[in-house]
Design a protein around this nucleic acid. Structure first.
Length: 874
RNA sequence: GGGCGCGUAGCUCAGUGGGAGAGCGCUCGCUUCACACGCGAGAGGUCGCAGGUUCGAAACCCGCCGCGCCCACCA
């Protein structure tokens, strides 16, 4: 139904046709509406994106793809509802809404789930077995080793099941997604686009490979990125350790929580201004137990107030060590293996020189092969025995960096990884962040803080299996060495490729791994390296130029605040590097769902309260009502009570619609009654408020304004007009019908983004087509409420009539009489102006209050005297 | 340590210069012809604390206290 012609106003407002309305049920109910209407919407393609629409009419949404491993929880329901209300609003405003759904199935969470579910582990050295079936009984203790292609097949099988369940939930919740455009982050399209973007970065020198100290998870045995770290408080102990003097100089005392890394010590540092350390600086000291000579140097990052003012630098205990190592040009002595155990080291060999090779070998022999914690305990014992530990270890609690999905602290291990240049783009990225319109505005600070605090380029390679492979191979020299410096990129036409099974042009399969042959890059991309391209994936960048031009840059990125540093940041980076643009105009940031005790909703709780249960118990509209009450960026308590309130609102809308639409008198051509005109005048203000709130992504305010006015409408306006509604004079009844029709039509559309099921139901009682494709209410529809010299007085009439009705009700309530109890006389004291206005609503008031007589007395202050029939005045 | 947000009725929250509000919960009443998944009424608050600006502050400014989140070089 197009909104562009003013002459449409009358039909759009929904003039009912006369007579009893057979479409209104005897007893309206919410039960079954989800199934009924989600089926109908799919059948009729109500939310299908029409790509023939011109760019300026398109509203494109870059939906967050939920992680498929595990389950959707109420937090997802919460934030996806927010986006859906905006999508529905924009659709009703006449925009063609591009709203696809994606599933993030790629990555570690899926791998971990597949390992547990099937009892397998991936061994890339095994050949593919086409006949493989997973073990009948999954054993976590003794997993079956499977090839990488088999492992990936299992991942795909499991995620497909999950994705079906997720889609079912979203449909039940009523998300107005175009399900024909669904994508997955492991799918062929996402792989192609990720690989193509990577090859572009490589060709432009924006991606590079480097062997360097890298953040490393020793359990998953993969590199991780700075953005994936989180701090956790862990107990530890501070050890004061003596480093012996060389050549008669003084001993050095350092403090450390990681004594197991003494063997990896490459220097001892002091602050340049620290007078106490003057005698040591520029000299050398010996590491205890191992007798390695290490220089004593200075660096401004050393804090003289901490510990003894001296700190040992190890390769590598933390990120500060990396800084010191790099800036002071120190050597590398690595003792930690990629599996988190101490490796063998060649004491006495170059790089491992020692004053006492025998002692070093004996001491280190106690540590070699042990885990970090075992080695730490043993080294403390050795230091105690040798007398190099000063005092007892002092228990401390300190923040330790963990991979957010990991169980042990991250270590820093030297390895070969792919990076994307990030640091050199910092200023552009901040500028893009300032271009972006944030909702709420203050979320921009989180982004800027993050960009300012970046310490390195983005490491995008992961030593894992279920992800997008790097589309490159390497030649192998005649001596069998892999020539990493000469990567062979895949031809673009071949994408997506898997270099572990595909063969580069100009080689034969038999040459894999052979001298003179080739080797595939063994790694996969960080899951964010794919997710950061969601605008390009949904817009089919490079596959469908026409579509991409229509939807990109996108209008809206909705997401929660916890992934600003990952998803939002990396998406801006990739768009900047690939297209030199900001990927969206607006970002709407959702809060979290909190337990009633204000803590972040816990996993266990989230699993008990599954979203499907909530939808079944309260109904989708009710759950959406609760969610829509959470303002942008604000954390919101999980509150079933609010869902009950939402359900009541939906029921109210059913019943109010039944009252207005159950039978349909001949509609009057114009509004005549002052109260009717005043009502529509107020509704004009509500429409304006809801519209401007929605335009600013404040769906919660739009709902609140609409809801508040709707309850007032039911409690006062509907009660006031009941007499005229049932008036035997058809002219009177039809005039009310017109006002009810216009107002109901507006309410049904104002609520449609929030309560899509019940609104579609009541719309279907009297209108053609879906309410979700009906035009958003506009002021022009209500213009007959305005104009004329009586406009101000009409509104006063409505106000004073309602005020008096309230007083009459109060009197009856205090007298413990029913509301229909007759009233002999009502005396209203009020200003002459208000009394004059009251005359306009007199007839409705007398009827609604069962009032026999009404008198006015002009005075300054408002007061009402109510004389119930058969009683003294109250 | 730095940054951001929050602190209003028992609970969840709205309110950004001029009457302290809503819903839930609670109490009382009402089978009223759209609705008992209802209707009507009522009780309940030093707007975290202390100062300042102003004729006037819940709101604006300064400081403090408390809660939450993000970030930071884990010695």
């Amino acid at each position: 139904m197009p909104a562009d012609s003013p002459s449409d106003t009358d039909t759009r407002a929904g003039d009912p046709s006369p007579g009893v309305n057979p479409r209104v049920p005897e007893r309206p109910t919410l039960d079954g509406l989800e199934r009924k209407w989600s089926t109908a919407w799919e059948r009729d393609g109500v939310y299908r994106f029409d790509r023939s629409a011109p760019r300026e009419r398109v509203f494109s949404i870059d939906t967050p793809p939920p992680t498929v491993s595990g389950s959707l929880h109420v937090g997802h329901v919460f934030s996806f509802t927010h986006t859906d209300t905006v999508a529905r609003f924009q659709r009703m405003r006449g925009r063609e809404v591009f709203y696809p759904m994606g599933w993030d199935d790629n990555g570690l969470p899926t791998e971990r789930r597949v390992q547990n579910h099937f009892g397998v582990r991936c061994d890339p050295s095994i050949a593919y077995d086409p006949a493989f079936t997973p073990p009948e009984v999954a054993s976590e203790k003794e997993p079956v080793a499977v090839s990488r292609p088999n492992f990936v097949e299992l991942c795909l099988a499991l995620t497909e099941t999950d994705e079906r369940a997720f889609e079912e939930l979203w449909r039940a919740l009523g998300l107005s997604v175009d399900w024909s455009m669904t994508y997955t982050t492991i799918g062929r399209l996402a792989q192609t686009i990720s690989q193509r973007s990577f090859l572009g970065l490589l060709a432009r020198g924006q991606a590079y490979q480097l062997e360097a100290p890298t953040l490393w998870d020793v359990d998953f045995q993969t590199a991780v990125a700075q953005a994936e770290l989180e701090d956790r408080e862990r107990p530890g102990a501070m050890h004061r350790v003596r480093f012996a003097a060389v050549d008669g100089g003084p001993d050095a005392l350092i403090e450390t929580t990681r004594p197991e890394l003494i063997a990896a010590c490459v220097a001892v540092l002091a602050h340049p201004d620290d007078e106490r350390q003057r005698a040591l600086v520029d000299g050398e000291v010996l590491t205890p137990l191992f007798g390695t000579r290490v220089p004593v140097m200075t660096h401004p990052l050393v804090e003289p107030d901490k510990g003894t003012g001296l700190v040992m630098v190890c390769t590598f205990g933390d990120l500060t060590d990396v800084t010191w190592w790099r800036e002071l040009g120190l050597p590398v002595r690595s003792v930690l293996g990629s599996d988190g155990r101490m490796v063998e080291v060649p004491w006495g060999a170059p790089g491992w020189e020692t004053e006492d090779p025998e002692r070093a070998r004996t001491s280190y022999g106690e540590l070699s092969g042990r885990t970090i914690n075992q080695a730490r305990r043993r080294v403390v014992e050795l230091l105690q025995e040798s007398g190099d530990l000063v005092g007892a270890p002092e228990p401390v609690t300190r923040a330790v960096k963990f991979f957010e999905k990991g169980d042990r602290p991250v270590e820093i291990v030297t390895s070969r990884q792919w990076f994307i240049h990030t640091l050199e783009h910092r200023e552009e990225l901040i500028a893009r962040g300032r271009e972006l319109r944030w909702h709420p505005e203050y979320m921009r600070a989180r982004y800027e803080d993050w960009v300012q605090g970046l310490t390195g380029d983005w490491c995008i390679s992961r030593q894992r299996f279920f992800g997008v492979p790097f589309p490159v191979w390497y030649p192998i020299g005649a001596d069998g060495a892999i020539l990493y410096e000469q990567p062979i990129p895949a031809e673009e036409a071949r994408l997506p490729v898997d270099p572990s099974t595909d063969v580069p042009d100009g080689f034969l399969p038999e040459q894999r791994g052979q001298p003179g042959g080739f080797a595939g890059d063994p790694d996969v991309m960080d899951t964010w390296a794919t997710s950061s391209l969601t605008p390009q994936i949904v817009g089919r960048s490079g596959e469908d130029a026409e579509l991409f031009a229509k939807v990109f840059p996108m209008d809206l990125r909705p997401q929660a605040h916890d992934i600003i540093r990952t998803w939002l940041f990396s998406t801006i980076l990739r768009s900047q590097l690939d297209d030199g643009v900001l990927p969206w105009r607006d970002a709407a940031i959702s809060g979290w769902v909190l337990d009633p005790d204000r803590k972040k909703m816990s996993k266990s709780k989230g699993n008990v309260v599954t979203p499907m249960h909530l939808l079944e118990e309260y109904g989708a509209d009710a759950v959406r009502y609760w969610a829509a009450g959470g303002r942008p960026g604000t954390d919101t308590a999980f509150d079933p009570q609010q869902m009950k309130v939402g359900r009541r609102l939906a029921v109210k809308l059913l019943n109010a619609s039944k009252f207005a639409l159950a039978d349909l008198p001949t509609p009057a051509p114009r509004l005549a009654h002052p109260l009717d005109r005043a009502l529509l005048g107020r509704l004009t203000g509500v429409v304006a408020a809801a519209t401007s709130s929605f335009e600013a992504y404040d769906y919660a305010r739009a709902l609140e304004r609409t809801e508040t006015f709707f309850w007032w409408y039911c409690d006062f306006y509907l009660e006031l007009v009941k007499g005229r509604r049932y008036d035997p004079d058809p002219a009177v009844a039809s005039a009310v019908s017109r006002a009810l029709g216009i107002s109901l039509s507006v309410f049904q559309r104002l609520f449609a983004p929030f309560l899509p099921f019940v609104c579609e139901e009541v719309w279907g009682w009297w209108q053609e087509g879906s309410v979700h494709r009906a035009p958003w209410p506009a002021a022009e529809e209500l213009e007959e409420a305005h104009g004329g010299e009586q406009e101000a007085m009409q509104d006063t009439a409505l106000a004073v009539t309602a005020d008096v009705l309230r007083e009459v009700r109060k009197a009856k309530s205090e007298a413990r009489r029913p509301m229909r109890a007759p009233v002999e006389l009502v005396i209203v004291e009020d200003t002459p102006e208000r009394l004059q206005a009251l005359e306009l609503g007199r007839d409705d008031l007398l009827q609604a209050g069962s009032i026999g007589a009404l008198e006015g007395r002009p005075v300054e202050d408002f007061a009402v005297e109510v004389k119930l029939a058969g009683e003294a005045a109250g």
